[in-house]
Design a protein around this nucleic acid. Sequence first.
RNA 1: GCGAGGGUUGCCCAGCUGGUCAAAGGCGCCGGACUUAAGAUCCGGUAUCGAAGGAUUUCGUGGGUUCAAAUCCCACCCCUCGCACCA
Length: 962
Amino acid sequence: MEQDYDAHRIENRWQSHWNESSIFEPEPDEREKFFITIPYPYLNGNLHAGHTRTFTIGDVIARHKRMLGYNVLYPMGFHVTGTPIVGLAELIENRDPQTMNVYSRLHRIPDDILETLTTPERIVDYFSVEAEKAMRSIGYSIDWRRKFTTTDDTYKKFIEWQFNLLHDKGLIVKGAHPVKWCPNDNNPVEDHDILHGEEATIVDYTLIKFTHKNMVLPCATLRPETIFGVTNLWVNPDIEHAKIKVSKEGCEEIWVVSQEAYRKLTFTDRTVEFIENVAGKDLVGIKVKNPLSGKEMITLPASFVKPGNGSGIVMSVPAHAPYDYLALKDLYDKDLSEYGITEDLQEIELISLIEAKDFKEYPAVEAVEQLGVKDQNDPKAEEATKIVYRREFHSGILKENTGKYAGVAVSKIKDILTRDLLDEGIGEVFYEFSEPVVCRCGTSCVVNMVKGQWFLNYSNPDWKDKVYKCIENMNIIPEEIRVEFNNKVDWLKDKACARKKGLGTRLPFDTNWLIESLGDSTIYMSYYITNKFFAQGIKTEQLTPSLFDYVLLGKGSVQQTAIDTGLAETLIANIKSDFDYWYPVDLRSSGKDLVPNHLLFFLFHHVAIFEKDKWPRALAVNGFVSLEGQKMSKSKGPILTLREAVDTYGADVSRMYILSSAEQTQDADWRNAGVESAKKQVERFYKLAKEIIDSGATSGIEGELKLIDRWMLSRLQQCVRETNNDMTSIRTRGALQNAFFLLYNDLKWYQRRGGSAVLYDVLDVWVRLMAPFTPHICEEIWSAMGHEEGNFVSQAAYPIFCPRFIDNDAELAEELMCSTLSDIEEIIKVTKLTPKMAVLYTAPQWKVTAFKIALKMKHNEDLNAGKLIKTLMADPDNRKHGKEIPKYVQKIVPDISSMKTERFEMLLGMRLDETTILRENIGCLSNEIGCPIQVYNADEPEYDPENKSRFALPLRPAIYLE
RNA sequence: GCGAGGGUUGCCCAGCUGGUCAAAGGCGCCGGACUUAAGAUCCGGUAUCGAAGGAUUUCGUGGGUUCAAAUCCCACCCCUCGCACCA
């Protein structure tokens, strides 16, 4: 071992040793396998601190499992399909200043190379080499023989096979879907092209078709159930409307809507023809028919109706919509004869259709009255609306007058009712933004239906059922996110899976389209296994569908596959048996950003393609990483590359830091100050290990052990147990807390208390315990401890909990020492004395006996003060303490009865002689306190000027300072 | 709006299957040892009161359950993230 810790030398040395001996290139054998994967990185930049976290977690699990005796496969590939790499190439080609600056300064790409990265291919080539170098430099135990990029021709064959299969199963369907669209650019707008309204979402309204003669007056609503409570329609008399011919799927109708709505309708999947303008006031006072009930109702004028919202015509539900109620009330004493309306509007009866918590018959009326809303222009009307809508949505139940829907919860009714209205031809779906969207070019955007689009049919209930089943049987870490997964599955709709732009594989059954880049990353874990063979010189055209069918699905025969592909039968059989050995994925570990997309699709595609026994077994999710409190951005900075972290701090320090900075789904913040402190810890580890090794220490575990040695070994086992527990639930922070920090502190205390016999044994366990986290330094120490070349700690057995070393008495004795010490210090602090001498009195026999009897009574679930006193008084020896006994019992009984089981069991088996322990350690105590110490038993104190000995309790000696 | 997560001591952050919790660890700060000095390292302190190991008030706010609540229940306030064709 070298004098000082030189991270880079140690790390380089062990990385090349690992390489030379290929210890991370597993082949199937008789051991149980463990196949762990993490999502491959997208290569539009160098790997950064965010990747470092996810990948290091993967590596630490891989190493832990390997040391536990599993045959571990941890592979890696690179994702390059999609548009960002193409976009990056363009930006570099155009020498975009920000891009050039960020990639040169933060991604640390040499300028002469950066300038050449003007095509997607060169970018892929460059970053894939860099990414591999970076991952090797931090010591990941990856099997590099299996790597690939998603634009490899062989990979494309695999994707084509998958998509053909899904298509054949009917899981890829053609349809239309709504997108944000700029009519000026004649293109969908992506998020970064939006000037205003990035937050806008596409909301689906239900369009309900009221009729007047042969004319349709469609009303858009988010609450289609309120159709049962409509009393009239609202039309704004001051706006211009349009009469249009609308045809859809061969059905032709005449509609009247606002001008804005007319414009929006032209972008939907309807054909729209303009007929004439219609003044708003001409639409007021006409009779329209409710399409569901057939009832006639009147249209009334309202100023709150905005032409840009929905169709520009609104249905009125005054019982449940405050605006409707207010507008109606406003009209009660108005003269409407100019619209030809003569009836008394007060006779319009409100129709209540929802039973909601804390509301009586007419929620809208109640809310308006409670808030004192004056009229439809009062700002408080908005608040009243919110209250009514929210409460009705959450607690509302439909009443009898809704016919077959009676009893259905308002929160569940929308989809059911919309489908029924659609089927009956009296309703349609109408998409609208939640807020206005403006394109970068200044044009106001619309919702457009893209036709002829291919969809992955994720909304398919049978498909979803299989995913639910898969999730149910999976281990999900942390368990809390299981509910989130289920929610997301529930929420997932069909997903457009084809693109016109970017890198990727063409859709095999419609080659105008490219497969969307999340769709091509769903079952690629299986490709790692086959790619080991493909990479050895199989021709692309030999990768026939029948090969994938046979290897991955077990369909067909090896003979036929050999004929189809021209490959040897033995080779094909090998590929298949490898696949059968390694699959399924035992653990997929990922950042939490991938939960609502990739991880979901990963599950969907697995259940669609594979049989149950090949479905993934576990999922783990971790949080993000920010940089000194700032969110990282590959394209704009700030960013810290993995490479830079390793260059600056070393691999082991970077690993230890990122693993200890946050737990599970919590976000981590990378801070230089924190890494510096991690570095100190690693150096301390090195120094301490070196001291132990240099001292020539050898195993002392079989020799005679002192109390303190037994204490150390007992504590060590606690750390071993906790570390393994934490690792099984992937709590790396907790694991390091135990495997490193607590153990280090215990070891320091052990040395301070004069322990040395088992130092070597502790180090032997400690190095193995730490090896998954900081593998390089552990190899270095391991080898310095005398293990010969080729004997790697990376392959050594991981320490597992050994109960025989647990020694409760040793731990209690040490606890006695510590608490006595801190009590003395406390007294010194409060009294500001400088003691010339300290006297300790251990508890008298009767107190110890009483304590033990009390413990036994609790053990028999029969602990009560009265009985305890009686039992004690029965012994004549105790009678002389007759006055003290009740007081003492009153004190210990509540203590013991409220004791936690663990503590209780520890005390129950206690066999300590406190006096002896304290006397044996007088040297240590007087050293710490700085004065001579005397120890007596309270039964026979030789020196007790202030009668302090009467305060002595078990595990709590009385103290007298002089 | 919908869904998920979170609000702890100067800061970051543990604890949250109720009792050993004035609450781990790290940082910062204070004191000490070492050093010519600085740095590093090591030791101790760091809610308030207290001349004997104790007492008191704390874990977003307000209630509740309990012998006992940071931990369980209810309501409220605040914060972060995702909401789709972008990887």
